[in-house]
Design a binder for these strands. Structure first.
Lengths: 136, 136
DNA sequence: CCGAATCCGAAAGGATACTG
DNA sequence: CAGTATCCTTTCGGATTCGG
């Protein structure tokens, strides 16, 4: 890396983006935190999350399973039973996610205030005085 | 909080979700990392990110500005000039985000392998043996 | 009980053209 | 240069129905 970054979006960055997208996903993090307490069954989670559709729960779990964050164990009983559990990888994800969550909580007030200010000023108004420096 | 969590989605959690959504946003984190090196102008960033539309750049910057992560300074010159810069809040966000990024890079191989395994097995096949425990 | 499949409205996001 | 406005395609995601 002798060269300064000129264009963003290098190879590795793209892979990282996918992980960030997972974290940004509305339900994935919620599920991970839920499973932190131990294995859960499908409908059990559906009841706990309260607002998720069974479609989204399925898709979210599939995504997490595909990434190796969650393991799926089905018991061929009648009625069927399926347990979802955090893998070691899934558990390891909790640490950086919780760090982010703590940042969010710590700065929650500041963000809300900034939003209120922004909205009060009507989005993006004119500039401050600033003594007209030469642009070129 | 003497009570254990029964239903997820308590008040504070929802606010945190919004922050996570920002982080999960495809462009926001990229912009924040770009601005870590100092203030940038609009088209300058557009060239650097390489793949972003000017519409998305505008929306992303507006969102970051609204949250108080980025400050916008317009110089009323001709031609106009607008500088975007990370606020202290914006800078403070870099730390937990980079922690997440490092986790992503560290586990990139493991995730890719899990995905390959999952896809090779065709999504979500049958169960392991498991000696039929009683479900109820 | 655990899902897959289908349908359909809502929202995201790129391309383009136009303004100050 | 720094946006805004419009169009249009793609995706997301809830509701519902059916199968193992």
């Amino acid at each position: 890396m002798t060269e300064e970054q000129t264009h963003f979006h290098t190879e590795g960055c793209l892979a990282v983006s996918r992980v960030l997208a997972r974290v940004g996903d509305k339900w994935s993090v919620l599920i991970v935190m839920l499973l932190a307490g131990g294995p859960r069954r499908f409908n059990e989670m559906k009841r706990m999350v309260d607002g998720i559709s069974q479609r989204m729960l399925t898709l979210t779990l599939r995504g997490l399973e595909r990434d190796g964050l969650v393991s799926r164990t089905v018991f061929p009983t009648i009625p069927p039973r399926v347990d979802y559990e955090l893998t070691p990888l899934g558990h390891s994800l909790r640490e950086p996610v919780m760090a982010l969550g703590q940042w969010a909580q710590a700065n929650l007030a500041g963000i809300a205030e900034a939003q209120a200010d922004f909205d009060r000023r009507g989005g993006a108004p004119d500039a401050p005085p600033a003594q007209t420096p030469r642009p070129g």
